[in-house]
Design a binder for these strands. Structure first.
Lengths: 231, 231
DNA sequence: GGCGCATATCTTGTATACATAACGGTGATT
DNA sequence: AATCACCGTTATGTATACAAGATATGCGCC
C-alpha cells in the first residue's frame, strides 16, 4: 500500500521548442525584446543555435498565449501592449483572485490554512527586513497558496497564467513608498477573512488588493506620459 | 483627411496551420476525435493532404489552448476531460460571465443596449418556434453581446475562449425539458438588470444562469454513470 | 510456460531545402 | 518632380530528409 517513490513527474520539457518558448518569454518580459520588436525567425534560430523549426513552434505557442502577435507572412512582433490593455488584464486578474478567495474561504483545508499562514509569516519577515525583492517573491507564493486553496484546478491554472503574464507590470511597482507595509496589511485582512470562512469578505478584499495594483500601474503610466511630454 | 477605405483588415488565416487548427478543433469538439484519441501527425497530414509541419504547428497551438495534450516524444492525445474538470470550468465560466454582467451594467452604451435587446428578442422567436438548435445559436450571440458590453477587450477574449471550450458540454443539455423557456426567462431578468444598471444583480443572475448549466452537466454525468453501472 | 532483455520498427523532434508572398529599390512615364 | 510599375531581395510557409527516443516484437533464459 505504500508506494515509496512516485515515478518522478519531471521528465517535462524534452521538446526544444518548449525551452525556447520559455527563453523567449523571459526575454520579452524582462524587456530584452521590448514591445514593437520584430522577431526574426532566422535570427532567433542563430541566437539559440537551433534551426528555424523549433523557433517557429515556440513562436506559435507564445502567440496563442497572447505574448506575441503573428501576422501571416509578416512575421512575429512583440505587441505594444497598450497600457489600457494591461489595465484590462488587471481588472480580470482582480476578479479571478476574488473568486479564488471566495472559494478558498469555503474550501480551505487545515493543512492549507497552515501553508497559507506560513507564506504570510514569511512575507512579514521580508517586510521587517525591508527586502522588497524577497517580499515580491514570497508574495507570489502567498497568492499561489490562495489559488490552490480554491480547490478548482482549472481556476488555479488560469490565475497562475495571468499572474505570470502580469508579472512584469507588477514588478514596476516594487519600490513604491510603503508598498510592502500596505500590501502586508491587506494580506493580513485577507488571511483573517479566509480563516473565518467569510467568502464575501475575502473576495472583496482580494479584488481591492489587486485592483489597487492596476490603478497604481495606470498612475505610473500617466506619470511617465507626462514626463515624456514635459521633455 | 478622409481615408476612404481602410485596407481591409481581413486577410486573416493565410497560414495553413491556423485553418488546420480550426478543423482539428472542430473534430474534437464534435466528437469525431473523442477523448483519449491519439492524434498521429502523419495520419492527420494525410487526412488533410498536407505535410507534417503545419500539422505539428496546429497541434502545438491547440495544446497551448488546452484542447489537446502533448507529452514529449509521445505524441498528442485528446485529453479525457474528467467531468470534474468540466465542472471546474463551468465554475470559472460563471464567474467570468458574472463579471461581464457587472461591468456591462455600468458601461453598456445605448447602441449596445439595442443590440442586446435584439439578440434577446431573436431568442424569444426561437423559443416560440420551439427550435432548440436555433435557440442555441442565438443564445451564443446573446452572451457574446454581454461580453462585449463589458468594454474589457481582454475579458471578452477570455470569456469567448472558455465559452468555446465548453460548447460541447453545453450542447449536451440542449433538449432538456423546458430548457429554452427557463433559459429565456433568466435572460429576461439579466437584460432588465443590465438595463437598470444594477451591476450586482446582473452579476448574480448571470452567475446563477451559468452555474445551473454546470450543475445540469454534473447531473447528466451522474445519470450516465448510474446507467452504465446498471448495465 | 512466464519473464526479461535485445532488437526492430515506428513516431516524434529537428534540420534543411524549396516555394511563395511581402518589402524595397530602381526606372520609366505622366 | 511625383507616381506607379516592375523586378530583385528577403523572410515566411511548407515539404522533405534525417536523428533519436519510445513502443512493440521476438528470442533466450529461468
Amino acid at each position: 500500500m505504500s508506494i515509496v517513490s512516485i515515478p518522478a513527474e519531471i521528465p517535462a520539457a524534452t521538446r526544444q521548442s518548449e525551452r525556447l518558448g520559455e527563453l523567449i518569454e523571459e526575454r520579452i518580459v524582462t524587456g530584452v525584446y521590448p514591445p514593437g520588436t520584430r522577431l526574426d525567425e532566422q535570427e532567433l534560430a542563430d541566437t539559440f543555435g537551433v534551426s528555424r523549426t523549433p523557433v517557429r513552434e515556440a513562436l506559435i505557442q507564445l502567440s496563442s498565449v497572447g505574448l506575441i502577435e503573428i501576422r501571416p507572412r509578416r512575421g512575429a512582433t512583440v505587441p505594444e501592449i497598450g497600457a489600457d490593455r494591461v489595465c484590462e488584464m488587471f481588472e480580470v486578474m482582480a476578479e479571478l483572485e476574488a473568486m479564488c478567495g471566495r472559494l478558498a474561504a469555503r474550501r480551505i483545508t487545515p493543512g492549507e490554512q497552515i501553508a497559507l499562514q506560513e507564506a504570510h509569516s514569511a512575507c512579514e519577515a521580508a517586510r521587517d527586513a525591508n527586502t522588497p525583492d524577497i517580499y515580491y517573491q514570497l508574495n507570489e507564493v502567498f497568492h499561489q497558496r490562495i489559488y490552490e486553496a480554491s480547490h478548482n484546478g482549472f481556476l488555479v491554472e488560469q490565475a497562475t497564467a495571468l499572474h505570470r503574464r502580469l508579472r512584469p507590470y507588477r514588478r514596476l511597482q516594487l519600490r513604491v513608498r510603503n508598498r510592502m507595509t500596505t500590501s502586508f496589511n491587506e494580506h493580513q485582512a485577507i488571511v483573517d477573512a479566509i480563516t473565518k470562512g467569510d467568502g464575501d469578505l475575502a473576495s472583496a478584499l482580494l479584488r481591492a488588493h489587486v485592483t489597487v495594483q492596476g490603478e497604481r500601474f495606470a498612475d505610473l503610466v500617466a506619470t511617465l506620459r507626462d514626463f515624456k511630454a514635459g521633455t
